[in-house]
Design a binder for these strands. Structure first.
Length: 106
DNA sequence: CATTTGACTTTGA
DNA sequence: TTCAAAGCCAAAT
């Protein structure tokens, strides 16, 4: 709990299906609005035991994580399977799917 | 052990 | 409006 990563893990694990969160949003919820990179780092070093829905974590623009992180189109496929809609640009409609109902943090 | 880099975002010019 | 720089913490070199 003391580490930033630990909090990132717990927060990401709470993202409901069919919703997405941005790196900066998660960082901001932890009090570090500019620590988006750390969230990405946390995902990189995240043990699979955490059952982290990292495919629900996207960029602020709605674009998915850079290729190489997931197999091509895999992240999109998983999100579509959860009911997430994509724009013509292949990006997520954040206005529609951004994680807004935060369980505990105000 | 010190330096660099990295799944990003926000500001300032 | 577009471009450049800072900031964030941990792991890799």
């Amino acid at each position: 709990m003391t580490g930033f990563f630990e909090q990132v893990y717990q927060l990401v694990a709470l993202i409901p299906p069919g919703r997405v969160a941005t790196y900066g949003q998660i960082a901001a919820l932890l009090g570090k609005p500019k620590a988006g990179r750390l969230v990405g780092w946390a995902m990189h070093t995240a043990p699979s035991h955490r059952n982290l829905p990292c495919h629900r974590v996207v960029k602020r623009t709605g674009a998915l994580a850079p290729e190489g992180v997931f197999a091509p189109e895999l992240q999109r496929a998983m999100l579509e399977a959860e009911g997430v809609c994509f724009t013509f640009d292949g990006r997520i409609d954040l206005d529609q799917h951004l994680w807004r109902d935060i369980p505990f943090i105000q």
